[in-house]
Design a binder for these strands. Sequence first.
DNA 1: GCATGCTCAG
DNA 2: CTGAGCATGC
Lengths: 263, 263
Amino acid sequence: MVSIATWNINSVRLRADQVVRFLSEQGPDVLCLQEIKCAEHLFPHEVFEAAGYTHRVVHGQKGYHGVATVSRIPLREFGRHDWQDNGEARHVGVELLGPGQGLVLENVYIPAGGDIPDREQNVKFGQKLDFLERMARWADKLDRPTLIVGDFNIAPLECDVYDHKALLKVVSHTPIEIEALYRFRDAHGWVDLGRKHIPAPERNWTWWSYRTYWQEKDRGRRLDHMWASPELATQSVSHRFVEETRRWEQPSDHVPLITEFAL
Amino acid sequence: MVSIATWNINSVRLRADQVVRFLSEQGPDVLCLQEIKCAEHLFPHEVFEAAGYTHRVVHGQKGYHGVATVSRIPLREFGRHDWQDNGEARHVGVELLGPGQGLVLENVYIPAGGDIPDREQNVKFGQKLDFLERMARWADKLDRPTLIVGDFNIAPLECDVYDHKALLKVVSHTPIEIEALYRFRDAHGWVDLGRKHIPAPERNWTWWSYRTYWQEKDRGRRLDHMWASPELATQSVSHRFVEETRRWEQPSDHVPLITEFAL
DNA sequence: GCATGCTCAG
DNA sequence: CTGAGCATGC
């Protein structure tokens, strides 16, 4: 059995303690982090080393974005892509070497896309769509058992947001983004493990805005995903999201997901 | 008996908890704070109210400097001076109304003075000397029992610094500053309570730099003072500095002083 | 609202 | 080293 987690941590330095707490309480074999917000040389390696996560691949940059995959089972880097060709650190791939041997794990942080859902008025929205398109083309060619995880910044289903109608024009839930995500899915038959294990309309949000979380209303979205190649998807045996981390002190605005595979 | 404390807190918002801990452990009747680093409307009044310090006079400004006097015995504002006439919040005076009735308590934050001890090369040094000169002239005219406390940014005696010879050319311990301080003293017979109660050469440093504190060497200075008018000085019965606060988590670089008066 | 990194100040 | 405020991004 191999368990794999993903978490947009929103600064790994600030929340190294929380990551360790999560690792010790939930014990995933591998954890993919997004928005580590530091360059590689500032990544808190000691903390992960001490926690037993002795295999790490870090693709960082100063201040923004950045992804890292940490593991207690051996792995090796499998490549990093810059689909925007602008130097942002938004992807790193690894290949598992011990248990789960042969599995490829792709850690992705899709751009947020700015505020206005129109590529004419908002270049960031166009960049998000282009990123997705290029990632879809790349993903289509993958020919090994692969898991693509991370912060997709897209909530595809109606039940993936707190108010479907209100959010149709809000970046993350617009039809154009969802169509782009579905083109990614359909080209290769990628399986949405979140919805395989927690079928709609059950709620499994992964993100709550800092701006509104303190209010009474419960306004989340499902922005974080785990997509498996068809054969691999048949081997996933459990999936959960750890909502309680959102109530920890000084939390990330995202919560982690964990999937177990019969490998 | 009335006890009066002074502490350069280096951000009262960041260290409100530490101030409350100090107040509960040491129980001074009145506390004069310097470098509160906030405007009046951001001062954490609730915290002091809950701790029983229900009388407060705050002279703050945004970001820098700022002084406040908080008290569990009644007091009223007695004026605020801007000796530099540049809008900086570096002084507030109060008059005690209950126990200690009639005592005037002046809370002062003298400018640090920059790095180079030469008014030609460093305007801040000139401003510090001018501040002292004007304060001395003002203090000379005071005609009530008065206590002047605060961060003076001057360590007058050889034993007030960790290395007298090395610091003769370092702002805070230069002869020109010390002479200015002594002109202040002599014009009115102000009594240095720190040295009345803890005679030289005993050490009673009040400040340790953040930059060097982590080193092994113990390199402090006595920058914080309590000066009493001659009659009032005869009524001081004890004086101490609370060095342990410098070892608390995320401490101020200054430690508090407390004097008790037979009033 | 909450990160980073910059500047300025001690 | 350690504050505050600012700009920027999500």
